[in-house]
Design a protein around this nucleic acid. Structure first.
Lengths: 326, 326
DNA sequence: ATCTCTTGTGGAAAGGTTTTCACATTAATA
DNA sequence: TATTAATGTGAAAACCTTTCCACAAGAGAT
């Protein structure tokens, strides 16, 4: 494959000149530029990006570490991040941590050695000590010292869910979710604010005996059987807020198997926007966090990573997405 | 960050020796090796992978071009491909073509310039002329000249679906699907064999007036309204085979909205395995193509890409996955 | 004692860019 | 016209490895 030297020879100039033409930098006389462009076309020359990275120490690769791209919301976010990165000429490296701490650490290490330009980190694991200063990181939904981050307005999401259930006449209200989903349960993500916003709002409306279901959630998957057992003691509940749509779907299935009608007997609000790839029987009433807005915010942070503006935290507004369950 | 030269100085040897230690190649005296290892540890040295790629012309990056990672089956396949690549020390670059030919071409170009080791190509677009000889490619579900490929046994999938419907007493049978899903509808993928296997089997059982629904499918998404219209003329159908689970879910919703019971009145068989992230009301009876087996086959092809064994085509067996709809 | 083979080591080239620097030319200003 | 400024260009260094090659020393064989 032709290299820059071949082009220089063909265009009868130095390689520095070819480089200037390619990068549109420095001075190049019009005629010279045209000669170079002609040579480039004739030889079908394309700069070797590896060699370029060698000198620039940049490779326009952004890595996205996330628990599992199969999770509906993460998969959506991934998609939008990829689209936005492409728009700005970057490539995306996908790193599923698969909920395994050691895989996540291995990736963090590998990424540093590969000199990726930046990392987007979405994790429930205790990786604080592995975050290297040399690796620009933007975190989603999770606070680390000195690491800029993006989160959706989880607290307000909880508020919206509470208001919806209250305004639709619910009296006996339940929250279903777990806050800490990683291998190390002491880790708290921004997601836990959903519960707080929800509880605060209910209390403000003098609803105090709120039922709070916590469960050990691994891999974000929950079985119908697990939930059936967990929910059994609470037959008279009439309003439920679930920490994700995935949980909401399972809860609805449990309710219906028990002869309850949704939303007539029990109202259910989910979280993530009620979008699914499939056309299922019911669209969930849900708190919508817009994945494209989140993606844009993340890319914005990455692009002026070194800009020392204190604007290192971006909260994306949420709104309620109408569905058929509340 | 320390480089190989620093290590050499610290270990009082040449850089070639350090390189030999790192790569476990050539002769190195035991004592020398230990000195080098000590220096590496002390300096926290990690080889710069970009520089490595510079000389080896390999970077252990495999790109996966696919229409849309949000599609359930593609998302699953993506996940397994990533896992398997990680196992063999490779990284994955995610390239959603987003159904846009020009984006796909841009990626193909970019990947070549970035000297990725290989590309996994899953496309419905007419990209034949853009496949460069310098870029090792494995194709999924699609035949290109001189390109090794993996496909699931789509024909047999069609056979299984037909047999299921027949053995469950269906008489008036329908196929719902489109074969060519890209921007250029003349492109045929291996998926079209689903229909062929299905039809062949029905005919063998003397079922001949098969209803064949084709529709213009964009982005793999279909609306309930579209299908409601398409299916309206065929109220007496009692067995339906859908080209994907996504389609099957929508079809079921149309049927139920019309007062038909599934599977009592109408049996529905989908394709992709009936797995979903969510616990929906119904699990689809479906033809299962195992994404992990497919991922393994793809990686196997990539790894001995240059081995000139003619074994350049791998067909993955499918089986029926029990569900509640047929 | 000489020759050959194996083991062990380091200098230097190669890989393909970008960027710095020095120098050359042309244009603008006094 | 002399002086400075702007424009234009190429050689060479730098980026950090791997690998080739030459050479040394010790072991084994004749």
């Amino acid at each position: 494959m032709a290299n820059i030297k071949d082009v220089a020879k063909q265009a009868e100039c130095g390689i520095a000149t070819v480089s200037r033409v390619i990068n549109k930098s420095g001075y190049v006389k019009k005629e010279t530029r045209e000669k170079v462009e002609k040579a480039i076309k004739e030889l079908g020359y394309k700069p070797n990006e590896i060699a370029r990275s060698m000198t620039t120490q940049k490779n326009k690769i952004v890595a996205f570490i996330l628990p599992n791209s199969k999770h509906i919301f993460f998969g959506e976010l991934l998609y939008h991040v990829e689209e936005r990165l492409f728009d700005v000429g970057n490539k995306l490296m996908l790193c599923n941590s698969s909920e395994r701490l050691e895989k996540e650490i291995a990736y963090l290490d590998m990424l540093k050695n590969n000199r990726v330009d930046a990392v987007i980190l979405l994790t429930n694991n205790d990786v604080e000590s592995y975050l290297n200063k040399r690796l620009p990181i933007v975190s989603f939904d999770r606070y680390f010292d000195d690491v800029p981050y993006v989160a959706s307005d989880n607290y307000h999401g909880g508020v919206l869910a509470a208001e919806r259930l209250i305004s639709h006449g619910c009296k006996k209200i339940m929250f279903v979710g777990d806050d800490a989903q990683g291998e190390h349960t002491e880790v708290k993500t921004d997601v836990s604010n959903r519960r707080i916003g929800f509880f605060d709002t209910l209390k403000k409306h003098n609803i105090n005996n709120i039922i709070n279901i916590e469960y050990p959630l691994k891999n974000y998957f929950v079985t119908v059987e697990q939930f059936s057992e967990l929910l059994k003691p609470y037959q008279d509940v009439d309003g439920i807020f679930c920490i994700s749509d995935a949980v909401a779907y399972t809860v609805i299935r449990v309710l219906e198997s028990r002869g309850k009608r949704v939303p007539d007997d029990v109202k259910v609000v989910g979280y993530d926007g009620g979008r699914t790839f499939y056309n299922f029987g019911k669209k969930i009433t849900s708190i919508n966090q817009d994945p494209d807005e989140i993606a844009k915010a993340i890319i914005r942070l990455l692009q002026n990573f070194n800009a020392k503006d204190s604007n290192k935290k971006i909260i994306i507004p949420v709104k309620i997405s109408e569905g058929d369950t509340a």
